[in-house]
Design a protein around this nucleic acid. Structure first.
Length: 485
RNA sequence: GCCCCGAUGGUGUAGUGGCCUAUCAUGCAGCCCUGUCGAGGCUGCGACCCGGGUUCAAAUCCCGGUCGGGGCGCCA
């Protein structure tokens, strides 16, 4: 992982939004703005061509300051009427904010700003003394939502104008973090021998029962959008792929409307042969440890961009605290006791609801696993051992959840590999094994014991970025009332 | 599916029956300023969600609708 460690992130003009050192020139620009910032002094005196959005255009008369921003950073372009074509100068000077502009000129060290007496001298900054340029596309006015305006915009309006919302530093940073989280997660799983697969999203039958599926027409037959890759990743394991993962969409036609639910979401799934629930909990905690460690090591500038906004909103800054391994395991039976001790009304066999999770989170504020749920509360494909029973005699399962605070991140478990028990589980849950023959047939010819989990990517990002709503960390969220943009 | 709440310029807000030809900020338009950097100064523009009702009088009260917010259930 390459990363410049010399960049001063405290400087607002050097947000270092992306590591752009290796980007090649394109037809439109010789350098990214991030490169001009990072290379700084070594570029002084050389001509560069940069492109970006006009964040501000200041000054009237014979000089003009154009703050240009691209996806890698921001830099000031300095325009002087004497140094360039007069009509071009006039048109850039009167360009609307967020117009895209290309400028060419010599890199120079900026004149230092006036500082208060006794204040430290800021580090040197660079600018481009423009000699030529071009307005690539003029932005309409007024902007439907401000990019740098000092007003709070509601989430709904922001999502209607996501293309502009994304131009805001902290929003952009959150999506860069999302990409990093997926990258580090992949890296880790590949290092443990997992291979990436893609399962079908158009399916014929109810995959697991339970949640509602979106129906669709597949030519002349009825089909559904997949609610989970669960059964297909198991089939991949039965086929000898040993360790697989998939990062893909899942669709649920539930009419929920909360900060943590969407009707389309990205599920980060794994499945591994010859593994049980403990084994895959280990994979998960190591993967989260790796993600957090790498973000802390490489991406503090992105966290800083998020925090700069949070502080302006008088919210607490987020801190990337790498969790210690192993994560606490709080078996379901113990969790019930904790809820009871905390004054919650709950009995063995009840689901642990959000307000119950608050009581557990008071004792275990970070990531924690809740293994060994009652079999009756888990899907048919979850494995159980007959001899494992709860305090009141109910059958336990090898299913687990991973929670952070009050929120569930993951659901997983050891899978049932014994076909006769699998079919009995289906019947116990009121499902017809015949309808699942595409799945159960996979178990008839020798099946390895296996285990896996599914992780909600946006929920994990909520923890990392402090976002209070999954919609913040999903580009174009799909919820009960939103299918556009 | 259940419960609670809300809707005022492009954006975010103040306004709980007459003081509203509606507040403030931001924005936008224009002018002034030859190195700004949260630029500054001046002038102007722009709004009461829709439909019905109560009242001498409705942004304000009532009913319906639409859209949105919060909580719950369910889940990842």
């Amino acid at each position: 992982m390459k990363r410049s460690s010399t960049v001063d992130n405290s400087d607002p003009f050097r947000p270092n939004m992306r590591d752009s050192k290796e980007w090649r020139p394109t037809s439109y620009r010789s350098h990214t703005i991030g490169q001009v910032i990072e290379l700084g002094n070594s570029l002084v005196g050389t001509e560069v061509t940069i492109c970006g959005y006009a964040e501000t255009v200041r000054g009237r008369g014979a000089i003009c300051f154009l703050m240009l921003r691209d996806g890698t950073g921001k830099i000031q372009a300095f325009l002087k009427k004497d140094n360039m074509d007069e009509s071009l100068f006039d048109s850039i000077q009167s360009a609307s904010r967020e117009s895209t502009i290309r400028v060419s000129g010599i890199v120079a060290q900026k004149r230092p700003p006036k500082v208060k007496e006794g204040a430290p001298t800021p580090p040197p900054e660079y600018e481009v003394n423009v000699s030529s340029g071009e307005i690539l596309a003029q932005a309409s006015t007024p902007l439907p939502v401000g990019v740098i305006d000092d007003v709070q915009v509601g989430l709904d309006i922001r999502l209607d104008n996501r293309h502009l919302d994304l131009r805001r530093d902290h929003v952009n940073a959150m999506f860069q973090l999302r990409s990093r989280v997926l990258q580090y997660g992949r890296e880790h799983l590949i290092s443990e021998g997992f291979q990436e697969i893609n399962s079908p999203k158009i399916i014929a039958a109810a995959a697991e029962g339970g949640t509602n599926l979106f129906p669709m027409k597949y030519f002349d037959t009825d089909a559904y959008l997949s609610q989970s890759p669960q059964l297909y990743k198991q089939l991949a394991i039965l086929g000898g792929l040993e360790r697989v993962f998939e990062i893909g969409p899942a669709f649920r036609a539930e009419k929920h409307d909360t900060y943590r639910h969407l009707n389309e979401f990205i599920s980060f799934d794994i499945e591994g042969a010859w593994m049980d629930d403990e084994d895959v909990m280990g994979v998960q905690e190591r993967m989260i440890f790796h993600i957090w460690s790498e973000v802390k090591k490489n991406d503090q500038h992105l966290i800083d961009a998020v925090n700069e906004y949070r502080i302006s909103q008088e919210k607490e800054a987020v801190v990337v605290e790498v969790p210690t391994l192993p994560f606490p395991r709080i078996p379901y039976c113990d969790a019930i006791e904790i809820v009871k001790e905390g004054g919650g009304e709950i009995e063995w066999g009840d689901d642990i609801e959000s307000h119950h999770c608050d009581l557990i989170a008071a004792k275990f504020p970070g990531f924690h696993f809740i293994p060994r749920w009652p079999m009756s509360m888990k899907p048919f494909y979850i494995h159980h051992k007959e001899e494992e029973e709860g305090a009141s005699g109910g059958q336990l399962s090898r299913g687990f959840d991973l929670n952070y605070g009050r929120d569930e991140m993951t659901s997983g478990g050891a899978r049932e590999h014994r076909v006769d028990i699998l079919e009995q589980n289906l019947r116990n849950m009121g499902l017809d094994p015949e309808e699942f023959s595409f799945y159960t047939d996979g178990f008839r010819y020798g099946a390895p014991p296996h285990a896996g989990w599914g992780l909600g990517v946006a929920r994990l990002l909520m923890v990392l970025t402090g976002a209070g709503n999954v919609r913040e960390v999903v580009l174009f969220p799909r919820d009960r009332s939103r299918v556009t943009p």
